[in-house]
Amino acid sequence: MTPALLGLPVGWLAVFFLAPIGIVAAYSVNVLALPPSTPGFTLGAWHDFIHSGVYLGLFWKSVKMSLIVSALVVLVAFPLAYYLALSGTKRKYILLLVLIAPFLTSYLLRVLAWKVILGDQGVVNTFLFWTGIRAAGHPISALLYSRFAVMLVLGYVWLPFVALPIFVSLESLDTRLLEAASDLGATRRQAFRRVTLPLSLPGVVAAFLFVFIPTVGEFVTPSLVGGTSGYMYGNQIVDLFGTGFPDWETGSVLALFLLGVIAALTVVFARFIQRDVAT
């Protein structure tokens, strides 16, 4: 009975999820190759990747951007989740829904909104011209097509989602522990630092990873609002598979490297994520 139940879903993923990654691996070592190159095992592309300043530099740039976004978003989301879970408000599930609802709407359209807001002829700049705060024809150009724009939009897009795991971990916190702490003479600040914060840490770590993992390989947002300075590692992968001068071998190396880093992170922090997913 069990093999019959699991056979189809596991088989589907084996064929359309695992096998494709295997093919990427084969391309990365040139066992498979795009004509006119001839196939033949070589680690050349891996060697070039590890010794290339360009690709690794771009990878670190993406990691840095993604780390900053994840940290800021968790910092903003924590007080929100804290308010919902521990303030005793009766409408907490409605407020939670209000917070999360934007996440459930179209990703591209939310990015589009910022394009409309931040552009040279966009809402912010024309508002500044109109009110005379800035002279017409002198827009703040750094708003759009910059690293700032990419990070702002990524933060905006992921913020609602991140509150959820933190909320879940704070919600399951036994409030009697806080009462006990206060009975024993702890101030609120001490109770927070010694009880609430450590106990909510799994949710915080999960939240952090839930933003970091999808954003570090992001290519859609940077290609829409990033310009050249917001160009990320994911864009590089797309370009290597693009129509101009495709280099599937190098592209496969870049893709597998990213996948490896994320798989390692997932395994190391699996218990945090699992605990969250189970609730």
Binding site: V10, L13, P20, V24, E218, G234, I237, F241, L259, I262
Partner: peptide, 24 residues
């Protein structure tokens, strides 16, 4: 293991999954 495998598409970067499918 089965459960981890079934949930694993959650953590793959879409750019990596996209090119993998393209190559398949």
């Amino acid at each position: 293991i089965a459960s981890a495998f079934l949930l694993s598409p959650l953590v793959i970067p879409y750019v990596v999954f996209g090119i993998s499918l393209l190559l398949l």
